[in-house]
Design a protein around this nucleic acid. Sequence first.
DNA 1: TTGTACACTTACAGTTGTTGTAAGAATCAT
DNA 2: ATGATTCTTACAACAACTGTAAGTGTACAA
Lengths: 234, 234
Amino acid sequence: MIMKPCIMIVEDDLYLRDELIHTFMKEGYAVLGISSFKSPEQEILDAHPDLVVLDLNLPGKSGFELCKWLKGRCTFPILILTARDNLGDELRALGLGADDYLTKPCHPGRLLARASRLLETYQKMPPLLRFGGLSFDVNACKIMWKTASLPLPETEGRIFRLLMEHAPGIVSKECIADELWGGSDYVDENILQVNMTRLRKNLDKIGLKDAVQTVRGRGYVLRLSSETETQMKP
Amino acid sequence: MIMKPCIMIVEDDLYLRDELIHTFMKEGYAVLGISSFKSPEQEILDAHPDLVVLDLNLPGKSGFELCKWLKGRCTFPILILTARDNLGDELRALGLGADDYLTKPCHPGRLLARASRLLETYQKMPPLLRFGGLSFDVNACKIMWKTASLPLPETEGRIFRLLMEHAPGIVSKECIADELWGGSDYVDENILQVNMTRLRKNLDKIGLKDAVQTVRGRGYVLRLSSETETQMKP
DNA sequence: TTGTACACTTACAGTTGTTGTAAGAATCAT
DNA sequence: ATGATTCTTACAACAACTGTAAGTGTACAA
């Protein structure tokens, strides 16, 4: 069973949005239109799309800001589709990490071809999780951080993956235990803590001391200390 | 010491070629212009570029064919730069795997921005070697073949990587021994053969029987059997 | 302050996977 | 047929990973 790629349309013009949704649906994609511009970041994150089609002129946060913010955290491609037909905006968008830049009106065939190209390209790459300046190669079970690369053993990698996927949210112990040792029928709660210690020691090797923090009674969080974070501010 | 990305210009118009080379050089890229159109495939392969800028109207093999051929074997991005300003050609090129399609005359700023975007995107992805329908994730040390995925131990992975990198050429035993056990001061020639047996056994698990073939007195080759290869013909 | 629940650390041992060695069998070319 | 080349199998040393056990440290409230 193959999962259809999911495309998220971030466009405030209702008419155009429906047209885009229709265009992609006809090709068999799963499509989501953004529902509000209160907190587009959260809505997009929650949707876990494989591709985002993004307008630049949006109510609230501009498409530029949104693009930059998303590219700092996510790995899906972003295709800008805008009426702003000038080189300056295109260069800016590309500089912020946008993967393609098309201007309205855009021939549906071109849009579909460009979108499909991006999906294929990104599909081929081994999955990389990103958070802040941190990235985690799920296949290789390796953390990349400032030129350093750290291979993790299976168990620690699975824990780290959960932390990355939920960051900057808290991950409960139950969640980790369920994910790693299945159900709630695992006996020794201690094993989680042992692995946490191991993970922390490994992270320490590449200068990620205190990246994994305990929230007493609630679980664990991935947090880059303010000192560490400075590196990421543009 | 950071290696500058290497860009290969495949363009027959001498004047334009030099102009492109100049454009990219000013930005600090290492640039190579194609020198002849006798066997562009080989020349491009040998150059190991990080990006190819490809014209469509070429003497001999067309840019379309070249694009398709390269995308079947290599992982670098291809940016089409052509005077053919029509949607049909663009769709065809994108369908063949081209990563971007720009028409001449093209503003240098746009070209640079598009090229740089592709380089960044591809740089971020963990290195994947490809040959035929086979791919090898160097980081994860995993082979991908028709939905199957096979993790290899370090030593076998290094051998397989050499075979992939040189395919469809022969890799001599000395080459492998040098690469794996350093210099020529390794004593036991047998260890190579032992690892070859192990590698073959592993490959057999995912239906790649006989993919590694012996060329008596010369070394080893990676070869997909005709039956296997059928899958790849479009 | 003291007790309790929660969280952390260290050491250990079973298990598994990887690597090179050794010895002998099979195959190829002339 | 014979010597060179290549292949295969079994073995043992070694390293890495994982969970258990037992004890230590820390936060918070009574």
